[in-house]
């Protein structure tokens, strides 16, 4: 009903251009035939082909996906437990410390988290001989620790918005508290848990700094591999890889957006 001022409209246009022009330019250059990323050498899809023949990339991708899936699952379980604790269990001893610890990873810079975890792993290796090697397990632990904070935030807001009388009804009908959590609470917060899992998965797949700290020699995640390549400058196969990333994310998000819109229209 209200018209937007011309100033707002132009800033909106500028802002979205600012956000998307870099992404578009990467996509355009991914079809550049030239090995020199900066010179246009005609249209080609050869870099996409090369991507799938590059074993290092495939290995790194596989490792990244394994870590992301494991840590996202753990983070969802722990994060949900943490959210349940904070919302439903009222005051308990050490609550302040706990809620501080669960939110801190959201704001503490990655370099600090990464460094502290690495020093921790080195120290306990000295004491207990574990972990003998840093790689899949240490990265998974690190990712679980910081992504459970995100899951907890998402599930927590869903839990607080939930009508608590639903749980009370179940108890009134003879359901014991532990059962209530499985019968009533979990099904209702399931969408938040799914969203949390997806976010945790993406965060893990995305992370470079923490993984660089806590991984050992030989264990390269996808971001670490990309970083080692792009340190030296723009390369055409990373352009292709980035374009694939953008494509997958865009298609997934738009599909999800479209589906929720459809559902809202129906109801």
């Amino acid at each position: 009903m209200r018209k937007q001022s011309r100033f707002i409209l132009s800033v909106l246009a500028f802002g979205y251009a600012f956000l998307y022009i870099p992404l578009l330019s990467v996509i355009v250059y991914s079809f550049n035939d030239s090995r020199l990323a900066t010179v246009w050498g005609g249209f080609s899809t050869r870099w996409y082909g090369e991507l799938f023949r590059n074993e290092q990339i495939l290995d790194a991708t596989f490792l990244s996906f394994r870590i992301a899936a494991t840590s996202a699952t753990l983070a969802t379980v722990f994060g949900t437990m943490a959210a349940l604790m904070l919302v439903r269990f009222g005051r308990f001893r050490g609550r302040t410390l706990f809620s501080g610890m669960i939110t801190a990873p959201l704001i503490i810079p990655e370099v600090i988290t990464g460094l502290s975890l690495l020093l921790f792993f080195v120290t306990i290796q000295q004491w207990f001989g574990w972990p003998s090697q840093r790689g899949f397990s240490t990265i998974t632990i690190a990712h679980t620790t910081f992504s459970m904070a995100y899951v907890a935030v998402i599930v927590r807001s869903r839990l607080s918005a939930m009508d608590q009388s639903l749980e009370e009804v179940a108890m009134d009908l003879g359901c014991r508290p532990a059962r209530v959590i499985f019968d009533i609470t979990l099904p209702l917060i399931a969408p938040a848990m799914v969203a949390g899992w997806l976010l945790a998965f993406t965060l893990s797949l995305d992370d470079l700094v923490i993984a660089s700290f806590v991984s050992g020699p030989g264990a390269n995640t996808l971001p670490m591999y990309i970083f080692s390549k792009v340190k030296l400058g723009v390369t055409p196969d990373v352009n292709a890889l980035a374009s694939l990333f953008i494509l997958v994310v865009t298609v997934t998000l738009f599909a999800a957006w479209f589906l929720t819109n459809q559902r809202e229209k129906k109801s």
Binding site: L19, P22, L23, V26, L205, P223, I226, F227, F245, L253
Partner: peptide, 16 residues
């Protein structure tokens, strides 16, 4: 949307 695209790749895009 950019949140879900790799941070590293978004920074990389600026190099180009």
């Amino acid at each position: 949307l950019p949140f879900w695209i790799s941070f590293l790749l978004r920074v990389y895009a600026w190099m180009g």
